[in-house]
């Protein structure tokens, strides 16, 4: 028995060493990329990081917490408007916009959590969407944000694109780290217990409301920060694009394609989504059509997405969130 355990431990040690080396290599490649690759590759990588970050958050809610939200565009839109107002209206620096966006996201999430956490299941889904739509109508009729004219975010033209690239890289890595940290902590255990059986978890002392609220707040903050970066990349904002369901549509696509309830899923999904929409860019109008068909086929064939399929078939597990029970020696 003892031999068996030690060999198992050695095996997992070499496995994690390989993972560490691969991760380091990928990180180094990503760090030197802006100097080696051209502006086009840099731009695509920026999009991948940002879409990955917001999808990671949608996945945290839908895949682990059971909160399927169709209203995450509310946070992206709010963040975009915070950026536009701080830099255009008041002429303040960009970093202030990031901080303000995070603060406003928390406050807004806390306020809307009062009504929407009373709703369960599909009602929560609908409620979040209605809130985002209400924000759209409100902003389109609000004189302070120039109605539906919106803003051009001119500060985006003056920033250093390499710095912006590293910022997006950090946002991407932080989003993965946040999810990993949550799932590895005690909250992660609580989340899994909740996902499997909510009543049983509550009886065993999991505070459902607090755990869900915490995940919702974290998701809204990271989504808002990524939202500021997304609007720095887009460089203009209107109520129609700020609170468009398209944002959440892309998150849903990414998570479904990659695999819901896995950390790797949003990474793979974001890479596929961004590359596919770049390829399909020349066929305007067809791109969402084709993405929609792909998503439907994937749900029919592999409902757990690419990562779920690989995990089932080959027991792949890049970011281990399962706990290894320490053998007593």
């Amino acid at each position: 028995m003892k031999n068996n355990h030690s060999s198992l431990r050695a095996q997992s040690k070499t496995a994690s060493l390989i993972k560490l080396i691969v991760a380091a290599v990928i990180l180094i490649v990503l760090i030197v990329m802006p100097f080696v690759g051209g502006a086009y590759i840099r731009n695509i990588l920026i999009l991948i990081f940002l879409y990955m970050a917001v999808s990671q958050m949608w996945n945290l809610l839908a895949g682990y917490t059971g909160l399927v939200s169709l209203g995450m565009q509310a946070f992206i839109g709010l963040a975009g408007y915070v950026l536009a107002l701080t830099t255009q209206q008041y002429g303040k620096p960009i970093w202030l916009a990031f901080i303000l966006a995070a603060v406003i996201a928390v406050v807004f999430a806390l306020i809307i959590s009062l009504p929407i956490f009373k709703m369960k299941g599909v009602y929560f889904t609908i409620g979040t969407w209605i809130i985002a739509e209400a924000l759209y109508v409100f902003f389109a009729n609000w004189a302070f944000v120039k109605y539906s004219i919106g803003y051009n975010i001119t500060v985006a033209y003056r920033m250093n694109l390499n710095t912006f690239y590293y910022l997006c890289l950090v946002i991407g890595i932080v989003s993965i780290a946040v999810v990993l940290f949550i799932l590895r902590s005690k909250t992660g255990l609580a989340l899994m217990a909740m996902r499997d059986n909510e009543d049983a978890a509550e009886v065993r002392g999991v505070r459902l409301y607090r755990t869900k609220l915490m995940c919702f707040l974290i998701a809204s903050v990271v989504t808002a920060i990524a939202g500021v970066a997304l609007y720095l990349n887009l460089a203009y904002i209107r109520p129609t694009n700020a609170f468009s369901i398209e944002w959440t549509v892309s998150m849903v696509f990414i998570v479904i394609i990659g695999g819901i309830g896995t950390i790797e899923g949003p990474i793979i999904g974001a890479i596929i989504y961004v590359l596919l929409s770049q390829i399909l860019y020349n066929f305007a109008g067809y791109s969402n059509l084709i993405l929609g068909i792909i998503a439907v086929i994937l749900i029919m064939v592999a409902p757990k997405g690419i990562m779920g399929y690989l995990e089932e078939r080959f027991a792949w597990d890049i970011f281990g969130i399962r706990r290894r029970i320490k053998p007593k020696s």
Partner: peptide
Amino acid sequence: NKVIDKGPNPALLVTFGVSIVIQNA
């Protein structure tokens, strides 16, 4: 009908995908 027995999410997401396809078509 193919996915309705597999829990609530797959069926929901199928209608979501069909919705996007119809709108763009």
